[in-house]
Amino acid sequence: MTALTILMLASAYLAGSVSSAILVSKLFYLPNPRVHGSGNPGATNILRLGGRFPAALVLTFDILKGTIPVWLSYYLGFSPLLLGLVAIMACLGHIFPLYFGFKGGKAVATAFGAMLPIGLELAGALIACWLLFVFATGYSSLAAIAAVSLSPILTYFIKPEYTLPVSMLAALIVLRHKDNIVRLIQGQETKIWDKGRAARRSPKP
């Protein structure tokens, strides 16, 4: 592994470690998203706690955390497998942020951003899948799990050479949602628009 590869992997992790949810919460004087609402420092929880504009800022920044390192690595000539590792490091930074006690979010937006350079066709299909499941069920977590689970299949038909790295990334995101899967099965998961209930609920361990 070359020094440039190690540099990009480290940079992706450090970029991913910047928790926009916590920074935006401080900027808008919102409750700490790691201890209020769902306990997840991500755009969905910020939507519940603070509304659309702060959530949009968090979503945009989290997407860019995945897109920028992968795009830079692509133009540096990295192989698809190495691009997948860069994407995973960005997501690991979001999940285990160096600057915030290694307690982060689910990395869905960051993973989406990392897949964005593959093409607008994949991005559009993933967004459509997420919206379909959100409007059908109301569960952001279920929509994310469904979209990311379909991403390797969609990638195979769009740019098959990226199927393996996307599969690696998808496995990480689904594994990160294991607690959400348990709550969905038990009927205890919070719906995306249930702001009041989420704000009162203590985060799950």
Rank of each mutant, 00 (worst) to 15 (best):
A123W: 09
A147P: 00
I145C: 04
G42R: 07
A43Y: 02
L142G: 06
M89V: 06
K159P: 07
A111K: 03
Y74F: 14
L81H: 02
I192T: 04
Y29V: 12
G84I: 09
I192R: 01
N32K: 02
S79P: 06
G101W: 11
T137G: 06
G37W: 01
F102P: 03
F100D: 13
P80L: 10
I185R: 11
L72R: 00
A90V: 08
D179L: 15
A144C: 06
T190K: 11
V182W: 05
L23K: 09
S11N: 00
T155Y: 12
I192N: 00
L64A: 11
P203W: 13
S11T: 15
Y156V: 08
G77N: 09
M168E: 00
V174E: 05
I181E: 00
T5A: 15
A12G: 05
L49D: 06
L120I: 13
L49Q: 07
Y99A: 08
L4S: 10
A111S: 13
P160V: 10
G50R: 00
T155W: 12
F28V: 12
F135V: 02
I46V: 15
K159L: 15
A111C: 03
P31G: 07
A109C: 05
A123K: 00
L120A: 12
S149C: 13
S19R: 03
I22C: 05
P205E: 15
M1K: 10
F157Y: 14
F112M: 10
H177G: 02
V70I: 13
W71Y: 14
K204H: 13
L7D: 07
S73N: 08
F28C: 09
V86F: 07
L131M: 13
L122F: 11
I118A: 06
E121N: 09
R48L: 14
T2F: 09
A136T: 02
W193H: 11
L49E: 07
V108K: 00
F112A: 03
S73M: 13
K106L: 12
A146P: 02
A143W: 12
L76T: 02
